[in-house]
């Protein structure tokens, strides 16, 4: 083995490192391409539509709860006892007759 052979090994080692550098570039380029795809991603838009649909369903339930609460309140109003209706009617009579 001689100095020449060492120089040859040195060259081979440099090429090895250069090869690693090329592979590194490829890794980064692939990542950039993948990032582009992610940013344009249509599957995420679909996920968004699904999420909105799920949210809409939960809102429907909430709206129904609100409505049934109002329905119950309206029923309580309609169920006001007759004696109160009579009292209110008496008030109207008094006001109309000014007595």
């Amino acid at each position: 083995m001689s100095i020449a052979s060492i120089l040859l090994e040195e060259k081979k080692a440099m090429m090895y490192v250069e090869e690693a550098r090329k592979r590194a570039q490829e890794i980064i380029q692939r990542a950039r391409a993948e990032a582009e795809r992610i940013l344009r991603g249509s599957s995420d838009a679909e996920a968004m539509r699904m999420e909105l649909r799920r949210y809409e369903e939960s809102l429907k339930e909430e709206a129904e709860r609100i409505l049934s609460e109002y329905r119950a309140r309206a029923e309580r109003i309609r169920a006001i006892p007759e004696e109160l209706i009579e009292k209110a009617a008496d008030l109207v009579v008094r006001e109309v007759l000014g007595s």
Binding site: L59, I66, R73
Partner: peptide, 10 residues
Amino acid sequence: MLGRALSEGR
């Protein structure tokens, strides 16, 4: 949706 429910309730 909730605005509609509230106004319907009112």
